[in-house]
């Protein structure tokens, strides 16, 4: 039973990292970032490219390989996040909601098919010499078994989330971000660079998604171009469950979805794991659309 909890929390931590991206963009723009799942997928590929580049440079084996790969993947995804904002959102910010939604969905299709066409239609293996030692090392604390990979997921999630909270609550940039989220016009009148701050939000969310992507790539051992769709939907469900636009809510929602998924697949049927998140999404939208911690979602006039 404890095993299920640990597995569920590890999955949940990953959903939470991705859900943060949805919730931050929603908080600042009031729009869902449909391409976020693809950004996550690009992060998965980015980590493999980085490991490959390090391998070609003969640097594999040093203890810094994995951290470097994670940072490279985060940078690549952040770049794609900014590109996404620039192409699909910036010009359409004042437009009818339909326009940015459509362009973002288009962007997500373009990114997914770009990876399929340029890399591979099939799967790409994550280098086993990096992931296998982590996945096979097990630590036991009484009845509690944790693999090194799960521990790494928890640690990384904690560090990244701590960093994000620090950035948002304690720095000048964070104050500016919150100001833009509250009132974009007013913030720009006060001299904040709204365009840059919105791009930064996309970049931050994308970097978190890429870190999650690297973890998932190690967890599953393979990456595929269509991995972003399912993960995106689940993380979105997590963001809505916690209350979209609310950062602690996204973390809570992610952990809850991860737990509920593993409990369902253990107690009912494992095939149902994939539909659990979607069922939760429908239930939340039906019963409590503002989520657990969210504010009301009525339209402002």
């Amino acid at each position: 039973m404890l095993e299920i909890l640990v597995n569920g929390l590890a999955r949940g931590a990953i959903y939470a990292l991705i859900a943060l991206g949805y919730t931050m963009v929603y908080g600042i723009l009031g729009m869902i970032n449909f391409a976020h799942g693809e950004i996550f997928m690009i992060g998965m590929f980015g980590s493999i490219f980085a490991l490959g580049a390090l391998g070609s440079a003969g640097l594999v084996g040093a203890g810094l390989t994995l951290p470097l790969a994670i940072v490279a993947a985060m940078a690549l995804s952040a770049g794609f996040g900014i590109l996404n904002e620039r192409l699909a959102y910036r010009k359409l910010r004042g437009a009818h909601l339909l326009a940015p939604l459509t362009s973002a969905i288009g962007m997500s299709i373009v990114l997914q098919n770009f990876v399929m066409l340029s890399v591979t239609k099939g799967k790409l293996d994550f280098p086993r010499d990096i992931s296998a030692p982590l996945a096979e090392t097990r630590w036991s604390l009484g009845p509690l078994h944790v693999t090194a990979l799960q521990a790494l997921i928890f640690a990384l999630t904690l560090v990244l989330m701590g960093g994000l909270f620090w950035l948002i609550q304690r720095t000048r940039v964070g104050i500016a971000l919150r100001a833009v989220a509250q009132d974009r016009t007013m913030a720009s009148l006060c001299g904040m660079r709204v365009d840059g701050l919105i791009a930064l939000t996309f970049a931050l969310g994308s970097a978190l998604a890429a870190a999650a992507g690297t973890m998932v790539a190690m967890y599953q051992g393979v990456v595929r171009f269509d991995a972003g769709y399912e993960m995106g939907l689940k993380a979105f469900a997590a963001a809505v469950l916690g209350g979209i636009g609310n950062i602690p809510g996204a973390v809570l929602g992610g952990l809850l979805i991860g737990l509920v998924e593993d409990i369902t697949s253990y107690t009912i049927r494992s095939e149902w794991r994939e539909s659990t998140a979607f069922a939760i999404l429908i239930l939340v939208l039906w019963l409590r659309p503002r989520g657990l911690l969210g504010e009301r979602v009525a339209d402002k006039v």
């Binding site: 010009k91 359409l92 362009s103 969905i105 299709i109 373009v110 997914q112």
Partner: peptide
């Protein structure tokens, strides 16, 4: 095909 359809969605909106 799908790559172009996605591009159509983005390009038309812009």
């Amino acid at each position: 095909r799908l790559f172009f359809f996605g591009s159509i969605l983005v390009a038309m909106m812009l």
